[in-house]
């Protein structure tokens, strides 16, 4: 026992310096999550502009509310306003750190709440270039990490890591994430498809800080390199700590959502 302890003490300084790329990648993700913990709840509106390669545009409008859950993923509710044929449709998600998320869809024409499979995460969200998984609550546990390098992006010091989705039903083999060194905010994500080919790039701009702590991007632009299509997602009217409760994220509240 004493021998082992001695060995550990001897090796300790060495291991501290010899942090592997995996450990550093994970440490960056954990730090980013730590800085974003404690917001309690928020609400915001989402506007989406879809553009195909001929330049034709269509619009989406949604409202979202989210509740932070201690030791698990967030609960989120998305209400669709536009296009008008889906107005009143709402989606409730209980995301989990491990295992599948729970998801319910409310169909207003039939007044029907339908439990759906959250496995179908790789599909496009509302016909946009965002997949459902791109908009889901980003828990540390959902990826494995590898730190790649430090570099500058538009003059800002960045930490660049690769992250691999743990869930085999993800549409991606891996993503490369640029996080700024100062505030641990994502500025750019490259998504690689199942053939490990670059599929999409997400660029996050217009960061604003809320409650003196929580940073949120105002604009998220997704470009699909393979189809030439793009989607610009604009976040507006962010409000934090609005007093939302667990009872605002139930099947009954999903039916009430307007």
């Amino acid at each position: 026992m004493r021998n082992n302890l001695f060995l550990v003490l001897l090796l300790l300084p060495l291991t501290l310096f010899a942090e592997t790329a995996e450990e550093r990648g994970l440490a960056i993700a954990v730090e980013a999550e730590r800085r974003d913990t404690g917001f309690s709840d928020f609400q915001a509106t989402m506007g989406m502009k879809l553009r195909n390669k001929h330049g034709e545009e269509s619009n989406r409008h949604m409202r979202t509310t989210a509740l932070e859950v201690e030791n698990d993923g967030d609960k989120t509710l998305i209400i669709f306003d536009r296009p008008r044929d889906v107005k009143g449709t709402a989606m409730l998600t209980f995301s989990h750190k491990s295992g599948q998320d729970d998801q319910w869809l409310y169909l207003p024409a039939l007044k029907r709440v339908k439990r759906i499979s959250s496995r179908n995460k790789s599909g496009p969200f509302m016909g946009s270039e965002f997949a459902y998984e791109d908009l889901a609550s980003q828990e540390v546990e959902k990826y494995s990490y590898k730190f790649l390098r430090e570099e500058q992006l538009d003059g800002i010091d960045m930490l660049v890591s690769e992250r691999d989705p743990v869930d085999p039903s993800s549409g991606y083999t891996y993503q490369v994430v640029w996080i700024d060194k100062a505030e641990y905010r994502p500025f750019k994500i490259d998504f690689y498809d199942r053939k490990k080919t670059l599929l999409k790039t997400l660029t996050l701009t217009g960061y604003q800080q809320y409650l003196g702590q929580y940073w949120r991007a105002g604009t998220m632009s997704m470009i699909n390199h393979q189809t030439g299509k793009s989607t610009v997602l604009s976040w507006k009217d962010y409000k934090f700590r609005t007093g939302l409760k667990t009872s605002d994220f139930t099947r009954n509240s999903l039916k009430r959502a307007k």
Binding site: Q100, R115, I116, S117, R119, N120, S169
Partner: peptide
């Protein structure tokens, strides 16, 4: 009764 097991309902 609905069981949501993986991809199948």
């Amino acid at each position: 009764i609905q069981a949501t097991l993986g991809d199948l309902l």
